[in-house]
Nucleic acid binder design. Sequence first.
DNA 1: TGTGTCTGATAAAACGGTTTGTCAACGAAG
DNA 2: CTTCGTTGACAAACCGTTTTATCAGACACA
Lengths: 342, 342
Amino acid sequence: MARPRVKIRTVAEAAGVSVTTVSLVLNEVAGARVSAETRQRIHEVARRLGYVPNEVARQLRAQRTKTLGLLGDEVTTTPFAGRMVLGAQEAASKHGWLLMLLNSGLDPELERKEISALIRGRVDGVLYTTMYHRVVRVPEQLRTVPTVLLDAEDDTAELPSVVPDEQDGAYLATKELLDHGHRRVGFINHSGDIPATWGRLAGFQRGLREAGVPFDPGLVVSVPPVAREGYAATLQMLGSERRPTALFCFNDRVAMGAYQAAAALGLRIPADVSIVGFDDQEEISEGLLPGLTTVALPHYAMGAWAVDALIARITDPQVPVERVLLPCPIVRRESVGPPPAL
Amino acid sequence: MARPRVKIRTVAEAAGVSVTTVSLVLNEVAGARVSAETRQRIHEVARRLGYVPNEVARQLRAQRTKTLGLLGDEVTTTPFAGRMVLGAQEAASKHGWLLMLLNSGLDPELERKEISALIRGRVDGVLYTTMYHRVVRVPEQLRTVPTVLLDAEDDTAELPSVVPDEQDGAYLATKELLDHGHRRVGFINHSGDIPATWGRLAGFQRGLREAGVPFDPGLVVSVPPVAREGYAATLQMLGSERRPTALFCFNDRVAMGAYQAAAALGLRIPADVSIVGFDDQEEISEGLLPGLTTVALPHYAMGAWAVDALIARITDPQVPVERVLLPCPIVRRESVGPPPAL
DNA sequence: TGTGTCTGATAAAACGGTTTGTCAACGAAG
DNA sequence: CTTCGTTGACAAACCGTTTTATCAGACACA
């Protein structure tokens, strides 16, 4: 079992050539002068011996690890993270790079230690990620290493970043309802002060404006974005005098509450009330019956974009810093229909 | 900006000593004979210069990377994965190790390439993960590197592994219902042929047996474990002549369907029917109203166990291979009550 | 016969650390 | 006055690659 690993030296000796030659041949170095026979012999020997170059030695020599650090606050905990990480991972893999997981949790002290550990030459760049779209101040240590922000924005606006186009997503959601003929649509917004709150409200208003529907502040409520609150808010909204015929919910969890409130009130979806959510958390949007029409967060695409941008900056520090908004596509299921006839 | 990185040599020269001495001092090598003054001087200089050792060089010399590969099929995609990865990550970090992400996706070709890439000395061991509890055959390449299975079992039973104790979890769920007085409890099982299917059925039966309730095959149906199917199955079960007073659902998604079916039938939870789920997917279990009593999969603990076991095996290959079942704790919310009075 | 110019290959120098073995100086013991 | 152990420190080897500079021989040309 524990036989000594075959290294380049082993191959060289077995093939009766120098290590240099083996390296040249195996790496297909352009301009290397090695006879055809020798080349073939080396290839054969290497395959027979099952030679695999030691990546660490290469890294040391090349002063490059082809590894990216994925640093975030609990990034892997959130249900969203999956697709973001996957997008990043697959993009990295496509370039032949690897992803290192650094989870700082919420402990800033740990975060600093993590960063030091990874800066010790193990990664060539860092993806700084948050579990939901936020504006952050990145730790000082990151200034020394190429960094791009993923699902987050730099408060100094100096670093490349990618976030969802909240406003456009909300606009699409609103338009979806308006296009079905709704004129009284309620909006259950997030009560927290984050980019999604402002962005989605702006998108909602833009949709209204474009359709010539006056904005009625009485049709907007703000609550913590969880099902229970969505339930209560919906009860209130749909129980009111001139109830909205459609609801745009800040996210799918709120929509989940809305569904249950509608059921409690004996209202059918979408016959009596139409609902659209946000996030496209599939457990919810597919689990709700009828299926929830919602707006998807472009997690996969953001992960991929961030990696591409980071690798580009690593290979060429001159590339300009971009701060992009990625579109949030609407995904239609069965929760939207025409408003009920009066 | 782009000033040359300070290496150990820099420190040595600045302190007027040899690299050896710097290394000895900074690593606090036991038994190294260096005078107190020299030690202090070295520490000062190192701090002043902001010296951080190059980890790659260390790895090469030590022939150890202190890095673990997390290899899985879409592992990061599943909503569960988060806590598993987090458990692994935090355990690794506790030992001073790092986690490398290798996502093979479903492409076995890619899987092979990934494995080769990581085997090139970049990781000391591999966590082989699946997105749900499965029995797998691990790829040949992994035989050469320390490996432990996470949420999966090796078909040859030769590798250490950690999986949830499905049977015990189902037993707890069943007992929870029985303890509340239910005697007719229905079980909506998974129709697929996986360990969870068998295990949870066995646990269900054990619960019944222990309580002296005869097992009625008519109260068990098997469906694909999604909300829509849970909805249909529940409609059927609760619409039947002698309907069960409680339902044990294979997972929370099925329970989500069951909730909606109950609502459609005008049955209240838990007054008219009690429900317990499995998995504790919080979006669902907390989003359902009333909150869903369910059984939690020990993802965090499994991730942590796997890392501990893997590091143990790496440091000492003699440690025996363990194959453990981790308990699935019940988490009580509001979906279970006494059966309705007749 | 010298002088270039290819060709095929190699020795040696990195890369940045850790570890082993050696050594000079010094005080204590015989 | 040796001998010996201890102290403080360092030179050099090593980890496994890639890359640079060099070299011997063959051949062409003047």
